[in-house]
Design a protein around this nucleic acid. Sequence first.
DNA 1: TATGAATGAGTTTTCATTCAT
DNA 2: GATGAATGAAAACTCATTCAT
Lengths: 212, 212, 212, 212
Amino acid sequence: MSRDTSVRPRRERRKEARPAELTAAALDLFVERGFAATRLEDIAARAGVSKGTLYLYFAGKEDLFKAVVREGIVPALTQAETLIAEHRGSASDLLRSLIRGWWQLIGSTPLGGITKLMIAEARNFPEIAQFYYDEVLRRARDVDTWQQLVFSPFIMFAVWRHSLACCDARAGAPEAYIEAALDFVLRGLRSDPGSLSISREPAAAPGRSPEG
Amino acid sequence: MSRDTSVRPRRERRKEARPAELTAAALDLFVERGFAATRLEDIAARAGVSKGTLYLYFAGKEDLFKAVVREGIVPALTQAETLIAEHRGSASDLLRSLIRGWWQLIGSTPLGGITKLMIAEARNFPEIAQFYYDEVLRRARDVDTWQQLVFSPFIMFAVWRHSLACCDARAGAPEAYIEAALDFVLRGLRSDPGSLSISREPAAAPGRSPEG
Amino acid sequence: MSRDTSVRPRRERRKEARPAELTAAALDLFVERGFAATRLEDIAARAGVSKGTLYLYFAGKEDLFKAVVREGIVPALTQAETLIAEHRGSASDLLRSLIRGWWQLIGSTPLGGITKLMIAEARNFPEIAQFYYDEVLRRARDVDTWQQLVFSPFIMFAVWRHSLACCDARAGAPEAYIEAALDFVLRGLRSDPGSLSISREPAAAPGRSPEG
Amino acid sequence: MSRDTSVRPRRERRKEARPAELTAAALDLFVERGFAATRLEDIAARAGVSKGTLYLYFAGKEDLFKAVVREGIVPALTQAETLIAEHRGSASDLLRSLIRGWWQLIGSTPLGGITKLMIAEARNFPEIAQFYYDEVLRRARDVDTWQQLVFSPFIMFAVWRHSLACCDARAGAPEAYIEAALDFVLRGLRSDPGSLSISREPAAAPGRSPEG
DNA sequence: TATGAATGAGTTTTCATTCAT
DNA sequence: GATGAATGAAAACTCATTCAT
C-alpha cells in the first residue's frame, strides 16, 4: 500500500532514495564532463546533499562511477530482453520495435549518455568496460559484422546528443532521424537475406527475407 | 631539399621538431585517457623532454590540447578536399575513395582518435568543439540526414578502435569491415536516388543514381 | 544491596552502566591505536551503542579521553594507598607487596595500558599529563633518583605488553618476570641503606636496611 | 675535495639535503605528537618547504614515517656494534661504555625519541615495529631476562624525556641519573655471576665476576 | 633553450559533531 | 534516552605552472 510509505519518517524515505539520487546526479555530470573532470562536490550539490553524504553510500569516486554504469545498463538490458522474448512477428518488425523501445527507454533519457561515457572512459576503467562489453555488446557482436552496421547509426546518434550536438544550432527532430535511419538500415539489409539475425530463432534463417 | 635538413645540427633539428613531437605524444595520451586524466609530465616523458620544456612551445595544457586537435584535423581536411576536387567518376566511387582515403590517412593512424577525443571533450571545450564542428562536420550535415547515416559506421568504427576495442579479444580485420560497410551503405542509399550529395557538384543532382 | 540493582529494569541498569562500558571500550582502543587514530565510531561499536549515544555521556572525544585516564588512575591510587597504609613489615616486603598488588590490579589488566597511553599522549594533553604526573608520579619522584630505578623494570614491562610485545613470538611468563625483577631491584638497593623510602615513614630512615 | 661541493649549484645541494631535513623535522613532530596527530603541512613548514615538496621525496605520510624510523635506528646500530666489537676490557666496563655511548649518540639527541615513537605506534605499524624489534631488541632479548632489567632504566629515561618530563619542573641532571643507574644496575647483577653476557666473548663466562 | 625542484591551489577523503526522528 | 543520517571543517594528496640554474 502506498499509505504505508507515506507514513514512514521522512529521513528514512530519504535514505532509500539517496543512492539513486546520487547516481542520477553523477550520471549527468560524468556524461557531460567525463570522470576526471567531474568534482565530487558538484555531484553532491546537484543531488542536494553535502560532500560527506556521498561517502555514506559509495566508497569513493570510482565506486560511484561503477554504480552509475551498472545501474544505467542493467534496466536497459532487462527491457531489451523482454522486448525480444515477447516479440511475435517478422525480424524487421523486431528491429523496429527494439530501436523504438531503446529510444523511449534509453536514447531519449539521460541513460543515453552511458554509451558516450563508456567510449570516453573505457581505457581508464578496463573492468567496467569489460563488464559493459560482456553484458551489452558481446551478444550483438557475436553474430556477424552486420550487427555493427545496423546499430551504428543509432549509437552514433546517442553519442552525438551528448557531445557535439551542443554545436549544432538546428534543433533536430530525433524521432524523424530514428525512423529515417530504420528505413536506411533495413534497405541496407534487404538484399542480404539471412544477415538479419538479431532474434535467435529460425525466423532469421538464411534464405528467408527479413520482411518475413 | 631533405638533404638540407639532415645536415643541420641536431639541436636545431630538434627545436623545429619539438612541437610536433609533443603534440604527437599528447594526442596518444589525450585519446587514451582524456584531457583531465592526462598528466603533462607523462606527455613530456613520452616526447622525451622535461616538463618545463613543454611550456617553451605551448602556453599550457589547454593550449596544447587545441594544438593537438587543430593539427589533427587540418591535414585531414586538406586531404579530403583534394580527393573530392580531383574526383572524376560516379558519386559512389567518390564515396568509396573518400572512405578508403580516410582509412589510410586518418582511421588507421593515431589521428583516428581525434573523433573519440572530440566526443569525450566537446562539452568541456566548447570553442574547440565548435571549431571541429564547423570545419569537419558542418558541411556534411548541411545537406541532409543521410549524411549521418552514411558515415556513422565509419565514425563508429574509429571511435571503437580507441575505446571499447580493448575488450574485444577477436583481432578483427579492419579493412574487411570497411569494405563491408561500404557495400552496406551504398545499398542503403540505392533506392533513394539523389540522396548522395557529398560533392557539391551537379554530379549529385536529384534523379541521378549514385552508381552513375 | 546488590539484589536491588538486579531487580531494576534493564534499561535503567544499562543507563548507569553506560559510561563505564564506554570508557572501557575507549581505554582498549586508545591504548591500542592512540588518541588521534581512534575513531569515536569504533569505540561506540565496541561498547555496543551508536555514535550519538556517546554524546549523551561525554562532551566529546577529549572529554572521553580525560574520563578514561581519570577512571583508570584513581582506583589504582586508592589501592596503592591502602596497601601502603596497612603495611606492617619491612620496606622490602612492602615493595614486594606493592609490585605484586600493582600487577594484580593494574599491570595484568587493561588498566596497565594507561601508562603507555600517557607516554604517547602526554605532550598532546598537558593538563591530563600534569594530572597523571601529580597524582601518580610526583610522590615517588619526590624522594630521590632511586625511585625511578626501582620502578622502571615494571613500568617498562607494562608499556611493553601494550606495544612491542606483539612482535615477540615467545609467550613469556609475566609473573616470572615480575619476581625476577623484584629480586634484581632489591639486590640493586641492598648496599644502599636508606635509599628505599617508598613509605613516607621513618621506617625508611638512613641506616636502616630495607630488609629491616 | 670540499671545493667541489662548494661549487655545486645551490639547488642541487639542496636536493641532496632535503630528505634528511625532512626526516629530521618529521622525527621531532612525530615524537612530540604521534603519527596521526602530526600534520604533513607542519613537517613541511618546519623543514622550510611547502607541502608539495614533501611528496617529491616521500610517497606519503607512512613512507615518511618509515624513513624516520629506519634512519633513526640504523646509525645507532652501527655505533653500538662498533663499540662492542672494539671493546677490550671487562663486561661491566663494556656496559658502562655502551650506555655512555648510547647517551651521547642517541639518548641526548632527538633520536632518543624513536623509542617513544615505537612504543606509541607499534600496533599501528606492525611491519615497522617488527623491523625495530628484529634489528634493535631481538639480540638483547636473545640472551635472558636480565637484559630487560639491565636496560629498562635507560630506556625508561629516554621515553620519559619525550613524554612526561614536560610535567616535571625540576630540570634534572641527565648525566647524574645515567651514572647512578649504571651503579644500580651493576650492583643488581653482581651476585649473579654469569648473567651479564652482553659481549659474546668468554670474558662473560659463568663464574667470572662482571668486574673482571 | 632546457631542466626539474619547488610551489600552492584544488580535489578527494575522513571523521568529530549535530540533530531530526 | 537512543539512533544514525547528515554535515563541513580539516587533512592527505595531486599536478599544472613557475623559475632559478
